[in-house]
Design a protein around this nucleic acid. Sequence first.
RNA 1: GCGCCUAUAGCUCAAUUGGAUAGAGCAACGGACUUCUAAUCCGUAGGUUGCAGGUUCGACUCCUGCUAGGCGUGCCA
Length: 569
Amino acid sequence: MDETKSEIQEILKGAIRAAISAGELPISEVPDIPFSPTKTPEHGDIATPIALGLAKTAKMAPRAIAETIRKHVNQTEHPSIRELQIAGPGFINVYLSYEWLYDTLRTIVSAKRDYGNCGIGKGKRIQIEFVSANPTGPLNIVSGRAAAVGDTLVNLLNAIGYEAIREYYVNDAGGQVERLGESIDIRYRQSLGEKNLEIPEGGYQGEYIQEFAHHIATEEGDVYLKHNREKRIALFKEKGIEHLLGQQKASLERFRVNFDVWTSEEAIRNSGKPDQIIELFREKNYLYEAENATWFRMTDFGDDKDCVVIRSTGEYTYFVPDAAYHRDKYDRGFDKVIDLFGPDHQGHVPRLKNFVKALGLADDWLEIDIIQQVNLVDADGNRQDMSKRRGQFYTLDLLIDELAEAVGEEFAVDVARYFFLMRSNNAHLDFNLELAVTQAVENPVFYIQYAHARCCSIFQQAKEQQIQMIPIDDTTLELLSEPSEHELIRKLADFPSILLSSAAEREAHRIPHYLYELAGLFHPYYNKHRVLDAANMERTHARLVLTQCVQTVLANGLKLLGISAPESM
RNA sequence: GCGCCUAUAGCUCAAUUGGAUAGAGCAACGGACUUCUAAUCCGUAGGUUGCAGGUUCGACUCCUGCUAGGCGUGCCA
């Protein structure tokens, strides 16, 4: 399709050039030819608003310009153009020869699993960091959204020729995990019968902490009481991280998200890189001392406030290991890194970017994308706060469990992933668990999967009727002459550009919407026309090719989303 | 106060770099299984794109102001 587009561009440019020479178009330069999307087949295969754009400089009516351009296209010289039509305020609608549709099918059949992919990324290495939840509790549905989106983004980037990997930053250092250790300690001692203990301010109230502490108490008894409090907290912190991180890993695996690299904040802190960075910043005179702390001159980088990098206690704030972590990413040779953040870390974005700049790295090396929040709403539509510390949240596992009861385990993951992936990243998502479960059965993902299953079923039937597939070159594709067939093939032809723009603009949700539209063309076609017809084998073979192509594109798209493509339902 | 995100059909959401008549699903109503799978199809109905201006051939999209909600905003991450 890209080749066809540039061919059309050249033809139109030639026509404009000829019109200028003939003195019929008073402009000095031949412009680039933009294309506008054709929403309906009535707008042709390709459409351009070029005449509208030239109206001002040429001081002519757009339709008159379009007419002039059309006049200078010698159609007999260009068999790829079936018809040029001028429509609306002055759009030039290009109807291509049907041959391009059949070429699309040939392309799909030969590319198969690779159809839609391209090499634009040239093998450049990209790291995407996402989820990166604190190891202080189970993953909630917010992390589920991030996991689904990040995972798909990596698939998309790999499909367009990058070498992308998934990375998870484990915040196993700092105040939060300290509170975790303290909270386990309290629950542990309570479990052993100690009274008058309370979870401290900022501690973790969730039941899972009680259960875990109780488990330690019953399994290992009071052996930890022989240590002093500080030592106990350190031990419990370590035990807690191991336990909760293990839980998170299991949840992610169940959700079909497999990270390539897990990086520990503790390890970064101990690597010496934070100290090197402080040293570097000091040399560059980015730091100063005030109020007993060490500050970074963020205002020199355009921020309105400076920020503390070394607390009065002597500890680094999270900025330092974070900057060190990004330095580490750079040292590992990534051409680009993408961080997916939640909106609660939005304030961190300009600062992290400034730190990266202070390290001397290029501005566009680090990209930070925000995935908007997921709000929990009750049956009346009222928002409920989620708080890991207070123990109020819905876990990803609970979501999948509930969905699994309605539709089974495999489809539960499909439904959940689709649910998160169909939204654009900056849509604030109101989540009602009850509704999600009752609507699971009506989830649009089944519409897509069912279309795929139907394709498979046709081939199953063909096999039973002993209808053999024949080579595509021996197939009379011209028999695919129904408008609905042309529309289907046009949609199939869109896939590569949808994939590309979806990856390039980090808009994973376009894939689910595209697949839904494709299924939405296939189902009516299936209902109206029969593929297998013993009385018309020539057409049967042509339609089998079309069916195969629909199946291929659906399967390729679903694979990008990490959603299964069932052969029967 | 300042910064970011959001506001589209009763509900949940789409709409490619500014393009032609703003689209789906759910919910409502009426139809279609002796058929390659009815998790499907066909039809009806549903809109001042939060409000007010501006930019231009053209605005859901860009700019300004306003309203409402969410998030963030110097030693939590």
